[in-house]
Design a protein around this nucleic acid. Structure first.
Length: 556
RNA sequence: GUCCCAGUAGCUCAGCUGGAUAGAGCAACAGCCUUCUAAGCUGUGGGUCGCAGGUUCGAAUCCUGCCUGGGACGCCA
């Protein structure tokens, strides 16, 4: 438990004790006591609305209740400096600042582990994200999902969950046949033959490349093989080529997976038929128009879904249900899927399937990532100038760098659409939040070097009680909040809270930097206290940036 | 037509489990470098929280209806 939590806990207990002593309510009648951190400084360090909540039970005006509570409160035990009653009945607590003195030692002690908690209690969570089809480049929506998923996993892992990252490879079914036939056409074309692309073929530049590569490597060998052999070979070749490219792009983006799950393996390991039988046994399927349908409307879907088409093949949904069953069978407590906004209509049928297989609906949670709109020179960028296709992750990374892309993609709530301003992401100015935060880290780093040059030992003893300036107190409070922010962001699955936090922390640092001088030969004691504070800030910024997958530079 | 997301300052967005005078950044305006990085800081102005009802001591937040924008509604994946 961190310092701030401890302080809050003690305070809550004391408030509860005061309520009982004042005979305002019985033990059972007391609602859980909520402490908030007022935005307004004049409202104290903590505030509670308990008096208003008790108004009905105690049948008294909130202000009188507040008076009663305050007069029965043991201020020393809760390390309260003073208490005020304000507004309609808020009780504002002004704490003795000594609790802040423990913040720095705690951070220096924990180092890179500061922010780690065990709020997840080892719960096993699997996060499936990206899972792009092997038929082209990763575009902006995928990239945002990749950044979101990755940071979410980092958050969960830091908060004591056991996390597994998985990529579901769509390496079977129609679209892969299509891929092979597209390659076939490009291959023939590369050999100078007339060949038409299949009707729903993939027209990306990568397929042309594959065709050329094959022509170079094999000449016209594959034109003479049987269609079956040729297509099978192209299928495998194309899959390998595409997934390698996807993996390489993701690696460069700082995203890796624990497991790449093959859709094809569901067929090879016979996972689909047993699943269909199970649905059938539960009477969740029926035949109509020569097809097998899933009665997903039993679980609130707006229409039933086809599992087996009248030509005997499966829809996309069918192996996907088997996949989710497989995931659950692997023993995860919770499944999280990160999907693009265009998949949201798919949620009810997958949740229906999970219930039909006998699992609770909330075993699966789906995070929907809203669309990304790219802007450059104030204009919406629809297509890449270079390729004429949608702008790819690779292109974006080379244009603005990994740090900016990652930061920008998790800066906003996942369910809000995102405007990505290329000029802003590129700009090396205070407008750019990434640079703003990184600059704070670099500033401290060079300052610490200066300190050493001037003969101040970086691990010197210090007295945190000397840090009483307003900017220092604010920094200390902010630093103390960090573990809760992380745990909160993990629990709410909201990575943007971390960008928000680290930006605020950087802002406080810059403000402090301008207001106070750290290295002061005439006041060694204060210098050492401030150096310790700076080290604590640097650690916290570095840890937050690490969660985001953004680098923390020593100098800029 | 049904469903999902969004609607908060000129722009881009926060706003946790309902709380006090709704917050940042950018843009605008006025200042701060002989001093640890000015990629920074300080100050000022700017809001009927889409609209209308309801619940509540108390609503940007919860409920209902409506309006606007985006997306999804295949025996595609």
């Amino acid at each position: 438990m961190n310092i701030l939590e401890q302080t809050e806990d003690t305070l809550k207990q004391q408030i509860k004790a005061a309520v009982l002593k004042a005979d305002l309510a019985s033990e059972e009648e007391i609602p859980s006591i909520i402490l908030e951190k007022p935005k307004e400084k004049s409202h104290g360090d903590f505030a509670t609305n308990i008096a208003m909540q008790l108004a009905r039970v105690a049948k008294k005006a909130p202000k009188m209740i507040a008076d009663d509570i305050v007069s029965h409160l043991d201020k020393t035990a809760a390390s309260i400096d003073r208490v005020e009653i304000a507004g309609p009945g808020f009780i504002n607590f002004f704490m003795k600042t000594d609790f802040l003195e423990d913040v720095i030692p705690a951070i220096l002690d924990a180092g890179a582990a500061y922010g780690t908690t065990n709020t997840g209690h080892g719960k096993r969570i699997q996060v499936e994200f990206v899972s792009v089809n092997p038929t082209g480049d990763l575009h902006l929506g995928h990239a945002r999902g990749a950044a979101f998923g990755d940071v979410l996993c980092n958050l969960l892992a830091t908060s004591g969950y056991q996390v597994e990252r998985e990529y579901y490879m769509n390496d079977a079914g129609n679209q892969i046949d299509n891929l092979a036939r597209s390659i076939e056409a490009r291959y023939a074309q590369a050999l100078g033959r007339e060949a038409e692309m299949p009707e729903d073929g993939y027209h990306g530049a990568d397929i042309v490349e594959i065709g050329e590569e094959l022509a170079k490597e094999y000449g016209d060998k594959w034109l003479h093989e049987s269609t079956e052999e040729r297509i099978n070979f192209f299928k495998e070749y194309g899959l390998k080529y595409e997934f390698q490219k996807i993996e390489a792009d993701l690696n460069e983006f700082g995203v890796t997976f624990d497991n790449w799950f093959s859709e094809k393996s569901l067929y090879e390991e016979n996972k689909i038929t047993p699943m269909l039988h199970k649905l059938e046994e539960g009477n969740y399927t029926y035949e109509k128009d020569g097809a097998v349908w899933f009665r997903s409307t039993d679980f609130g879907d707006d229409k039933d879904r086809v599992l087996v088409k009248n030509d005997g093949s499966y829809t996309y949904l069918t192996p996907d249900i088997a996949y989710h069953q497989n995931k659950i069978d692997r023993g995860f407590d919770q499944l999280i899927n990160v999907w693009g906004a265009d998949h949201h209509g798919y949620i009810p049928r997958m949740k229906a399937a999970i219930q039909a297989l006998g699992y609770p609906k909330n075993k699966l949670e789906v995070k929907i990532i809203q669309m990304v709109n790219l802007f450059e020179n104030g204009q919406k960028v629809r297509m890449s100038k270079r390729t004429g296709n949608a702008v790819s992750l690779r292109e974006l990374m080379s244009e603005v760098g990994v740090d900016a892309v990652r930061y920008f993609f998790v800066m906003r709530s996942n369910d809000a659409q995102l405007d990505f301003d290329m000029d802003l992401a590129r700009s090396e100015s205070n407008d750019n939040p990434v640079y703003y935060v990184q600059y704070a880290h670099a500033r401290i780093s060079t300052m610490l070097k200066q300190a050493e040059n001037k003969g101040f030992a970086l691990d010197g003893a210090f007295d945190a009680a000397l840090l009483t300036a307003e900017k220092e107190t604010e920094l200390l409070k902010k630093l103390g909040e960090y573990p809760q922010v992380v745990a909160d962001a993990a629990q709410k699955q909201a990575p943007h809270r971390v960008t928000q936090y680290v930006f605020d922390l950087a802002s406080l640092l810059h403000s402090f930097y301008n207001a106070e001088k750290v290295l002061d030969a005439d006041n060694e004691a204060l210098t050492y206290a401030r150096l310790a504070l700076m080290k604590a800030v640097r650690i916290t910024i570095a840890n937050a940036l690490a969660l985001l997958g953004v680098t923390a530079p020593e100098k800029m």
